[in-house]
Amino acid sequence: MKQRTSPLVKVALGGTNLFVFLFTLSALFPIVWMFYTSLKSNQEFSLSIMSLPSQPTFVNYLNAFEIGNIGSAIFSSVLNTVIPVPLIVLFSFIMGYFFSRIDFKGKRILMLLFLAGMMIPIHALLVPLFVQFKWFGMLDNRFTLILPYIAFHLPVAIFLFDSFIKGISREIEEAAYIDGSSFDRTMFTVILPICLPIMSTVAILSVLGTWNEFSFALVLNKSTELFTLPIWLTFFSGQHTTDYTGKIAGLVITSLPIIVIYLFFSNKIMSGMTAGAVKG
């Protein structure tokens, strides 16, 4: 016989579903609002910021590409994401593997240093890093941001790999050694494929962090051709006026790759984080 659900439980479930629905709606509405507002003119936007566009226009997007020099900003953002992310994944995997499998002198000190890197707010390093880069003549060039981005994302990535690899049975490596596999071959051909879930998590989190970074991109680079997309968005605000709909169109262009990545890979982020937590 089917067990009947009491009215109180039904009310509780209905209230929970309603709360989740309203919460989801509140999270999705800003994105929807941003998309349809980018199709307005500034005059229509000033009359009502919430209403739908009466005459949708793509002129804001055309201006962004023709007037706003967005091509250079896209190239800078892509460059400062495509180069650091693979290096972050590679270095964090190697160091995470060493931390989880090998006992060496200074291991505890290194782990404390990386832990400090997670605890210290990165913006507290903005002025010291600027002074240091100025001293070495590393300011305002195409590759200025790559080293800071790698350094800022390594601590979290290393601890994620360390936690995940600790949950992998050592018998797998011992079997590989018995078959004549070397240390580095075992690490890259046996353990690395097993780490694909956490590798995806590290890569996606690194992409999100480097793509959206603002402060260091603003301070360490001064040439407009080196500005990334978050800095490029400030061009829509002048001393006395702001092109609101143009700026919102720029926000759509900037956030669209991140939204697509999140929609396609959000499950991998969650599964990788959960796997690392459980295995740790």
Rank of each mutant, 00 (worst) to 15 (best):
M1G: 15
K2H: 14
R4G: 10
V11F: 11
V11G: 00
N17G: 15
L18Y: 08
L25N: 03
A27Y: 02
P30K: 10
I31F: 13
V32H: 03
W33S: 04
T37F: 05
N42F: 04
L47R: 10
S54H: 11
Q55P: 00
P56G: 06
F58Y: 07
L62V: 13
N80F: 10
V82P: 07
P86Y: 01
V89T: 05
S92K: 02
M95Q: 03
F98C: 04
F99R: 01
S100M: 07
D103N: 14
K105W: 13
I109G: 00
F114L: 03
F114G: 01
G117K: 01
H123Q: 13
A124Y: 11
V127T: 14
F130K: 08
V131E: 14
F136D: 12
L139W: 06
P148K: 02
Y149N: 07
L154P: 02
F161C: 01
D162H: 11
G167Q: 08
S169L: 02
A175C: 10
S181K: 09
M187S: 06
V190G: 00
I191P: 00
C195S: 13
L196K: 15
I198P: 06
V202Y: 02
V202M: 00
L205Q: 03
V207I: 15
W211H: 09
E213D: 13
E225A: 10
F227S: 14
G238A: 08
G246E: 06
L251R: 03
I259K: 05
L263W: 09
L263N: 09
F264M: 12
K268R: 14
I269T: 04
I269K: 03
T274R: 11
V278D: 08
K279D: 01
G280T: 05
